[in-house]
Write a protein that binds this DNA or RNA. Structure first.
Lengths: 228, 228
DNA sequence: CGGCATCTTGAGTTGGGTCAATGGTCGTGG
DNA sequence: CCACGACCATTGACCCAACTCAAGATGCCG
């Protein structure tokens, strides 16, 4: 989720909210069903959120890296509807939501910021719905890589060198496909000269080629619908 | 999107926000890319929102009926990222967002309500990601029908009699499948004695059977992932 | 160096897509 | 009131993208 110029917000938050928390690789920050207490801003590290279905199926709903905020799902019912797990040692800032409501200190802008953040999360979700609902596997993976690249860049890192924090299975869960498919597509992209892949170390060789893959490919399920 | 006991909020809004708007069948409330001005509460009627991809592909991201609020996607960048189209003659209340920010009149609770509504939208989106990412077509359609039924019930109507406001193609776009598949599954459900289908008029004959279909069926893409 | 987890690759199957034809339903005009 | 045409829904036959199952390969950690 590209947060853009949220840096100022984060700085202001740091002044207000000094409570930090460290989560070790594999540990959970909150659980599906647990009471909602606060939002969390990722300081460093990497977190995945996943929803569990009754029958055991899981869907990863998001990956969060430095500068991004998670936990918005918990506000609605005051309990979380997904589980947040650290994929590497991670440090978060805890943001109790009531702080945001009490705007005695001219924090009105903060409120607006939060509306925007939540809206951004909604926009992100719509993008993923688009991915899942109307793109082929190759397009989804290309879009995923490009998104990670973009976020890497926003955080001041290279746009064409990524180190994946999640395993293939998790990419698959996020993008709605099986591990084997993810793996095959990585191989394929490498054969096409789009990527150079060494396990979790990815170099983007042909950014334009990847982008092209998304916009030019033909449709899967749906055509534009001119209602009426 | 089940909004539950939002009735009181709507009532209070009505006092504040007397601006109404009527949208005829097929007309749009706002467009992809247009400036964000306000949120909209559906008074009566039915609205779909759809995102357009550059290459012409479309994905329907939501259906909104009486008592539900749309437009949250526009807050982030102050422009809408989807298009809202009325599927039948519809009346909405216009909710300019700045009203929510200015809480001189003890509207703090209103703010919190809005956080909750946005969070609910996020939760809803996660549910759909789950649908699209890890369920088979039959399960998706079953979940869709059950969701409509539930919302119908919340609004005081029958739980087992629905009149679909959208066409098959739109259901397909929302659920990530083609019209033909939607149609075949309706036929199949009818053969199974789960539904009685006459065009857009749907009677649910076996609610339990539909629910069962969702939780008991085996997985498609992903198994639970016990990280580490 | 061995054991375990993750990733890759292959072969075979299938759910759902494509294409094409038919059947309903509704609104409009003669 | 009926006929025509437009749009939508259904059905069938065929096909392919992605899944399943089954080895291997690779890498990691004790």
């Amino acid at each position: 989720m590209p947060l853009g110029a949220t840096e100022d917000l984060l700085k202001r938050l740091e002044e207000l909210v000094y409570v930090r928390k460290r989560i070790k690789t594999g540990a959970t920050l909150y659980h599906n069903g647990s009471q909602f207490h606060a939002l969390y801003a990722v300081k460093s590290g990497f977190i995945k959120t996943e929803t569990l279905h009754d029958d055991g199926r899981a869907q990863i709903t998001g990956f969060y890296m430095g500068g991004e905020i998670l936990g918005f799902d918990g506000i609605a019912a005051e309990k979380h509807i997904c589980t947040a797990v650290a994929l590497e040692d991670t440090e978060v800032c805890i943001i109790p939501l009531d702080r945001i409501g009490n705007n005695d200190h001219g924090l009105n802008k903060l409120q607006n910021h939060f509306y925007k953040l939540m809206s951004k999360e909604i926009v992100r979700d719509h993008t993923i719905m688009m991915l899942l609902g109307s793109m082929h596997s190759e397009e989804r993976l290309a879009a995923f890589i490009l998104n990670l690249s973009h976020r890497n860049q926003l955080r001041g890192y290279s746009a064409d060198h990524l180190i994946l924090r999640m395993k293939r299975e998790e990419i698959g869960s996020y993008l709605g496909m099986k591990v084997e498919t993810v793996s095959r597509i990585f191989t394929h992209f490498q054969e096409q000269g789009l990527l150079e892949v060494h396990q979790k170390d990815i170099k983007i060789l042909d950014m334009a080629g990847l982008k092209n893959l998304i916009s030019n490919h033909s449709s899967k399920p749906n055509l534009p619908s001119k209602n009426q």
